[in-house]
């Protein structure tokens, strides 16, 4: 299975690009990647959702986990590019305001 995300680092900053479907089948792998990322205590994390077509509650939970962990360590998380079904889900869950979408 092709994982629907890429992580790149530039010093203390990280960019996470997520595409395709982030769901109950793919979110666990992202969760493991988030665990590896968070222990490095990045100061800024950019999450690019332009290529994300579908998300379910498992995918949302993975992003919430990332957001909470980075913020708890004093870092910043910027989520950009949410559109269509994923944006509708964030709005339904009222997370669009927390994530500043």
């Amino acid at each position: 299975m092709t994982l629907p995300f890429d992580v790149s680092r530039n010093g203390n900053e990280a960019t996470l690009v997520i595409r395709g479907s982030l769901d109950i089948n793919t979110a666990p792998a992202l969760g493991e990647e988030i665990d590896r990322l968070v222990v490095t205590r990045p100061t800024k994390v950019l999450v690019d959702l332009v290529g994300l077509d579908l998300i379910d509650s498992s995918g949302v939970a993975a992003l919430v986990k990332l957001y909470k962990a980075v913020r708890a360590a004093g870092g910043q998380v910027t989520i950009t590019g949410a559109r269509d079904q994923p944006l509708a889900i964030f709005k339904l869950l009222r997370m669009d305001k927390v994530f500043n979408l």
């Binding site: 379910d56 509650s57 869950l93």
Partner: peptide, 24 residues
């Protein structure tokens, strides 16, 4: 149910699925 007030501390990490289905 989901928390009444959502912020970075109360963001849920589970229990959202049935809420999504019922609301949609």
């Amino acid at each position: 149910p989901l928390p009444e007030e959502l912020d970075e501390y109360t963001l849920p990490e589970g229990g959202m699925g049935i809420h999504i289905a019922k609301t949609m």
